[in-house]
Structure formats: structure tokens, C-alpha cells
Amino acid sequence: MNEEFVNVFVEGMMRYLGHLPDVSAVVGTPYLMDTDDPVHYDITGIIGISGERKGCVYFTAPRVFLSHLLATQGETDLSDDNLLDLSGEIANTIAGNARSDFGKNFQISVPLVVEGLPTGVHLPAGVRSFAIPISWRNYTPLLVVALEQKN
């Protein structure tokens, strides 16, 4: 998995955050993640990828981070429904950015948003999964890219 490929997803994430008032997030140093024990926080938006490469990309964040993001947009309803909804919007932006960049050779699924990570979810076997921390204030949600290597 090359850096440019991973960057498309990171750009999607940063594109979302860059449009919010007073949100200046920083991309941290990516690290390899254990695919048998995927890291996750309270709420996760997952995008499935098929076609030229297979795997998934997910954005996982603590509730407090999503609540703060909603508040910056003037939203006063910080219910779980709205937090899941926001996570879906972020995942949609990441997916939309990827569709636009990768074109027809990749099929990007409609995001699935869940609390935590669904039980029994396994990242694709034998792939290198990268976790990319995104820092804003005291929060560090993660963007995880787990895709097959290109042959």
C-alpha cells in the first residue's frame, strides 16, 4: 500500500475537518496496526472497498470528540443518534473523496456506522493495516486503512 493511496483517505478526512469553524486538525504519524485486534473508539464509520484492491477503511472516534465537533457547528442536540449521524457524514466525505480520486476501478461502499466495532470484524488477512491518528485539541481519533497490496 503506497503513501499516495493512503493519503486519498487522509485528505477526505481533513477535507471534512477543514470546513468546520475553529477546527485545525493535524495528521499524526501513521503506525502499523495488529489486524487481529483492531483499535477502535466509541463510534466507528466503516467503508468497504472492492475492485482493484479489497479491504476497508474506517474512522473511529470517542463520543467526546464527535460531541465537540457537533458543538462547533452550533448543534445543541448531542444525542447518540446525532453522533452516529455525524460519524456517517465524515465517512461519507472520506468515501466520496476516494470515489472521485480512484474512479471506476474501485467500488466504495455506502458507509456503515456502528458503536464500537462490530463483533467478529476481522481486517483482511495478510494485509498491512495503517492507523493514522488525527489530532485536534486533546482528541486523537483514528483513521484506519486496511487494504490488500497491489500485485
Binding site: 457537533l70 457547528q73 452550533g74 448543534e75 442536540d77 443518534d81 446525532n82 449521524d85 456517517g88 457524514e89
Partner: peptide
Amino acid sequence: DSNVIRSRIER
């Protein structure tokens, strides 16, 4: 379909 977006546009 996003309540967050509907509310935001309304605001």
C-alpha cells in the same frame, strides 16, 4: 437523510 445536515441548513 442526515439530521445533523438538515438541522445545520435550518440554522
